[in-house]
Amino acid sequence: MVNHSKKSINQYAGYIYLLPGLAWIFFVFAIPIIQLIGMSIRQGPVGQEILGFDNFIFTFRDPLFIKAITNNIKLLVIVPILIILSLIFSTFLYERIKGWQIYQTIIFIPVILAVAAMGIVFSQILQLKGLLNETLRVLRLNFLIQDWLGNQGLALGSVVGVIVWKELGFGTILFLARLMSVDKELYEAARIDGASGFQLMIHITIPQLIHIIEFYAVLLIVTAFSFVFDYILILTNGGPNNQTIVGEFFVYKYGFIYNRFNIASSVAIVYLLVGIVLMILRYQIVKRIDS
């Protein structure tokens, strides 16, 4: 049967399906990236003197860039947090606890709201005299009261909190959707064997969900690396004292505000290389899981 299919499909026909996508990527990514590479090795716009790798060397010497990439790596903490929370909530919903349909609707609402808009709201809530601290005061939890965004040790953590608030629903619904198509008998059989909730999670839920978990993890890694700009811009503007600067923010500031597009280009290239490494890693890991 397998042989049959290989014979019948004209392998070269594949190129036709690739064509529109490749054309698009060529226009939107390849041409700009070639220009970026051109700029990353020069002092000014294309046409000016070539410096070689100077911009890259300056980039890695710049403590601010090191801070930015460190913060991107720190933000990866959202990956385990969100996967675990999503697994828990989706299991609850899957078990059809009372009111699960309402919960399911509500948990997804933060996902659809614009970061730019909700960032404004959170910067109000997280103020020293904001709602969160007022609530803590009413609950007599005064020892927990903090300057969530104003304290340089806490600001990045607060950003993580907001990202988790925003992204939790997506993972939960993704996982729930996949769970609903898992054969129920698997669970029933395991329950008859006396498996605990935790065992069910380890032996059935996670293996059944592994592909969707992988997708969600990649999405979150990408968020942590290159889609946190809106959160940072509105919640902290990179501060206090540069403590919450991230790569994308660095690129934006250097490229547009500080008139250092060449440095910004080299940072973009570095992030692209990081992306390639991550994707090769992912490829290897998936291969191992599948075999």
């Binding site: 340089q152 501060g239 206090p240 004292n241 500031k253 008139n259 250092r260």
Partner: peptide, 22 residues
């Protein structure tokens, strides 16, 4: 002064004073 020095040096330095971290 260069905007880069202003925004990544001068302004954060004053924030650090307010934080009393430097």
């Amino acid at each position: 002064t260069a905007i880069q020095i202003w925004e990544t040096g001068v302004m954060p330095a004053s924030q650090a004073i307010f934080q009393q971290s430097l």
